[in-house]
Design a protein around this nucleic acid. Structure first.
Length: 280
DNA sequence: TTGTGTTTTATTGCCTCC
DNA sequence: GGAGGCAATAAAACACAA
């Protein structure tokens, strides 16, 4: 058991027995009469009353005594400075407040516990909002992905129906066709790819401003350079607001175009992610 | 007035550190 | 082994709705 405990008399757990002769009770370092102690101080008194030591001393409950606002204020200040209590500071505070050092120590202990609880609540709030933001971002990426997938499927169907009904399309014919269809499409792939491809890096990308467009983080999104290694073109950024020069503070449209060195073309899916390959 | 929920003060037991 | 910290808990003090 911790030494220096039982300031208020021996106690069975949760049942305090106060030192005294029956007519008096130990209170914050002094003995008062039961008669006096039976007068109760209302919790919310006027500030004058609350800070009036004399008034407070006369309104003593027989058992636990609440600290005065003055005492609490000083303790709070001290806690703000340092939430641990060195023996010296404890004694000093106790003297200043007219409390037992043990009471000061207990107050700090309980205060630390309250602080910890509040901190946990704050941490929870931060984590939760972070989680919610991530979840919403994730949902939107999933939706975009689904949209892109269905667009690819639609394009493939058109391709096959147009060129070779009932047959697979040779790759050398598929590429120009996909480009053509992409231009006709109203979905996010409606980019004039040849603008980029024919003029090299200096060419200007053209975006259909009326069409629904996607915004993809070119750095953090799935659509990163690694995933587009060997690609003919990467749709780096498409957005709903029109942009004259194809660039804004968030980056430029199609700023990264990968010219494919590979001699083939394919449409390739891996898990939830969609790859778009084109071989020349 | 009374029942109930919350806050505050304090104890107990265990653990760690020196 | 003593001192101090912490978690769990008790119980008084208090707020508040019915």
């Amino acid at each position: 058991m911790e030494s220096g405990r039982l300031f208020f008399g021996s106690a069975c757990r949760g049942n305090m027995l106060f030192l005294g002769n029956g007519d008096s009770v130990y209170r914050g370092g002094s003995i008062i009469s039961m008669e006096e102690s039976s007068k109760k101080r209302p919790f919310f008194s006027s500030p004058e009353e609350l800070f009036d030591e004399e008034y407070y001393d006369e309104q003593l409950p027989e058992k636990k005594r609440r600290l005065t606002p003055e005492q609490v204020l000083l303790l709070e200040k001290s806690f703000e400075e340092e939430n641990k209590l060195e023996p010296e500071r404890k004694t000093e505070l106790a003297k200043k407040l007219g409390l037992q050092p043990r009471q000061v120590a207990v107050w700090f202990q309980n205060r630390r516990a309250r602080w910890k609880t509040k901190q946990l609540e704050r941490d929870y709030d931060v984590l939760k909002s972070s989680y919610d933001a991530l979840l919403s971002k994730y949902d939107s990426i999933i939706k975009d992905n689904e949209k892109l997938k269905s667009e690819v499927v639609a394009l493939n169907e058109k391709l096959l129906a147009k060129e070779m009904p009932g047959e697979a399309l040779p790759e050398e014919k598929a590429v120009p066709l996909i480009m053509e269809l992409a231009q006709m499409s109203t979905l996010p792939f409606n980019v004039k790819l040849e603008d980029r491809l024919s003029s090299g890096s200096g060419g200007s990308a053209v975006v259909d401003e009326d069409a629904p467009q996607l915004v993809v983080d070119s750095v953090n999104s799935y659509f990163s350079a690694e995933n587009f290694e060997g690609c003919l073109a990467r749709v780096d950024r498409v957005q709903s607001s029109s942009s004259e020069d194809g660039s804004d503070d968030g980056g430029s449209y199609f700023s990264d175009v990968f010219v494919a060195p590979e001699p083939e073309h394919q449409h390739h899916e891996e898990g939830e992610a969609l790859y778009w390959w084109a071989w020349s």
